[in-house]
Simulated assay, not measured.
Amino acid sequence: MELLTIFLSSLIGLVSPIGIVSDRVAESTLRKQFVSVEALQVRIDNAPTYQLLQGRIDRLRLSGRGLVPRKDIRIDRLELETDPIALQGLRLKLAKPLQAGIRIILKEEDINRALRSPAIAAQLQTMVRRNERYSFLNPQISFLERDPLKLGRANRIRVQALLSEKGYPDQLAIVAEAEPKIIAGRTLQLQNLYVTANGQPAPAPVIQALTETIANRFDLRQLEKSGITARILQFSLQPAQLELSTFVQFRPPSKK
């Protein structure tokens, strides 16, 4: 979500009274937020000139493909559409919250590449109870079809990784399968979670602890202290990709 905050902040800059109102220049400016871009289109629905001079536009729409915000992190598709945007004064201060609908498609292969990146590996490490004795190696995710009659829709995920302990050569092959579900549009819950270590089922207390850790870690309410309200409107798994539609409201922190 840090990337989302930076991206939304750049949108505010496009609307400032001394900022950018041209589709082409806006597109060029947004491209600079990414390491690389395969395709990007920006459309600004202009309000009357006097409103533009006040830092207001009716709507901003964006469509992108193959967006790489950081090395080894790729977004296959990104679509964004805002409500009217309005600023007050010459500083980049919102007169009202910025609201947007966002649709994201992530490919399974891109998710696995990201899991191997140093940034994501560091975050995974914090999920091992911040214990430096243990490390996750070679994590991999797969989207599984339970029933071939479901016409290609996946409803389970499998996560595999090796767990190593500092000072010991042996490694545990961890395999976890679950049905992901979004609760109240804001929390990821892993239903029917099943975990094995070297082929042996994990104890029930371990399953419960892992379920609670995931739910707490992926709770969008944590963003509210940063001025972001987010809700997941759609969560869809296919055998090779994940699709996510969200509503986001962005409120920059007030300056005292």
Rank of each mutant, 00 (worst) to 15 (best):
K96A: 12
L98V: 07
A100P: 02
A100C: 09
G101Y: 08
I104D: 02
L106K: 06
L106R: 00
L106I: 03
K107G: 12
E108R: 13
E109R: 12
I111Q: 01
I111W: 02
R113A: 08
R113C: 01
A114P: 00
L115C: 04
R116T: 06
S117V: 04
A121E: 06
Q123W: 07
L124D: 06
R129N: 13
N131K: 06
R133G: 03
R133S: 09
R133K: 12
R133F: 08
Y134R: 05
F136K: 05
F136T: 05
N138E: 15
P139G: 05
Q140K: 13
I141R: 02
P148L: 10
L149M: 12
L149N: 15
L149W: 11
L151T: 09
I157T: 03
R158W: 01
V159Q: 00
V159Y: 05
V159R: 04
Q160N: 14
Q160S: 10
L162P: 00
K166N: 09
K166G: 00
G167W: 07
G167T: 08
Y168F: 15
Y168L: 15
I174R: 08
E177T: 10
I182D: 08
I183A: 11
I183D: 15
I183H: 13
R186H: 12
R186L: 08
Q189F: 11
L190V: 07
Q191H: 14
N192C: 09
L193G: 01
Y194W: 13
Y194D: 15
V195N: 05
V195F: 01
T196I: 10
T196W: 08
T196Y: 06
N198I: 02
N198H: 06
P203H: 08
A204G: 08
V206W: 05
I207Y: 01
I207H: 00
Q208W: 07
Q208N: 13
A209F: 06
